[in-house]
Design a protein around this nucleic acid. Structure first.
Lengths: 225, 225
DNA sequence: GCATATTTGTCCGTATGTATA
DNA sequence: CTATACATACGGACAAATATG
């Protein structure tokens, strides 16, 4: 360590468990994903810090958490802004989903039973919410369904990647004016994918999932244009 | 030419300007991935801040950046430490690699030509370095090879995921006492995978890659035990 | 177990640089 | 070009937790 420190000195020229920050991040994340803070909005350190009664340092840490989740973007000397996704971002996000989620299906056979149960529960939660006409919850259940598919790989890091990816995708869901029309058709598709998986028909499940991606991606891109 | 110059001026903001925290993070990241700072080492705020001539607040910001990259871990009221990977981490990292990199091979046909060229160049760079006996460079070239495989998907987000994953994996490469013995066998495997890909033999390439993962994972886990 | 020194957690005030109207 | 607003970075202060004797 001391040797390394001496080395550092020569290179000067080149050069928490902070639960409050996490709570602040939770608040801001909710406001962003629910559309109360629209893409492009600038987030002033002073205003928000004063509003929440926290110091700038703590707030900056919360900003950093959300920047890492790609919900905010940080422009040097200009501040942080709510991320604005363009068509290219949406295409990239679906590209990653195709890679990760179809790979997950192929791992369904090796997955612990609990992981498969989570898939079924997400399907059923969506169907229950649809009966009650609660389309916001249907949307959440759909997210959980895809999160559960990824979970079949049984990898914490992949789970985290997908969690962030879906949060990012929510930024663009607000362009969909009609939540029922957007979410309802996926309920049947989700059940179909689950049943194919359960019956070991991996290839068919993969095909059904692929067609879901094609449709959803196109819907979003059309709505953005 | 003049139009282009005006465009350049507008892009000054994106060139060569970064926060000191980001530059400090660069220095520390290099020292961690190169093994000058070994896993488990505690990083003292005061010592490092003094050595680099920066304030504690700025240094803490750099720590947070690297913590988000999983290269450091932050223990509340105890400080930050260089991350120490356990066997479970290694298994998870290879699980993600299997998902992402094998999916990448299946995209090889659709990939832009430049992406395929990058794969070939990584293979050749490794072979050149091996002739010179430069095993550190062979190791880097091997990283670049796998980064290039991921690049076949042509997805910025997947590229970033793999970049961070490989940086994390470097934390554990230092347990390998014999760099030549560790890296040399992969040179041939890399060339084989490249040639199979080039010839459109996707399934065979995938098989070769899978066996690489099995061997490398086992080697690392054995060395850790 | 106790007292002390060290280190981190948090916040504030301020000087400087940068962007924008 | 000027004025204003804001981000960056520093240094200091004190509380709280941890490590050390």
């Amino acid at each position: 360590m001391t040797e390394w420190l001496e080395g550092l000195t020569a290179r000067r020229a080149t050069v928490g468990r902070s639960s409050t920050a996490a709570r602040v991040a939770d608040v801001l994340r909710q406001d962003v994903t629910d559309g109360r803070l629209l893409p492009g909005t600038r987030l002033s350190e002073e205003e928000i810090g004063a509003a929440l009664g926290i110091s700038r340092n703590t707030l900056r840490e919360a900003f950093r958490l959300l920047t890492h989740e790609r919900l905010l973007v940080h422009e040097f000397n200009r501040g942080v802004f709510v991320r604005r996704l363009d068509a290219q971002d949406v295409r990239d996000l679906y590209r990653v989903r195709r890679v990760v989620e179809t790979a997950a299906l192929r791992h369904a056979g090796d997955a612990p039973a609990a992981r498969m149960t989570a898939v079924r529960q997400a399907v059923e939660a969506g169907e229950r919410a649809a009966v009650g006409g609660d389309w916001t919850t249907v949307g959440s259940a759909n997210m959980h369904f895809h999160q559960a598919l990824t979970g079949l790989v049984d990898s914490p890091r992949l789970d985290e990647t997908m969690r962030q990816l879906l949060a990012e995708l929510r930024l663009v869901f607000h362009v969909m004016a009609d939540p029922q029309g957007f979410h309802e058709p996926y309920l049947q598709g989700n059940r179909e994918i689950y049943q194919l998986l359960r019956d070991g028909k991996i290839d068919a499940a993969e095909e059904a999932l692929a067609s879901y991606f094609d449709v959803a991606e196109k819907q979003l891109l059309d709505a953005m244009a």
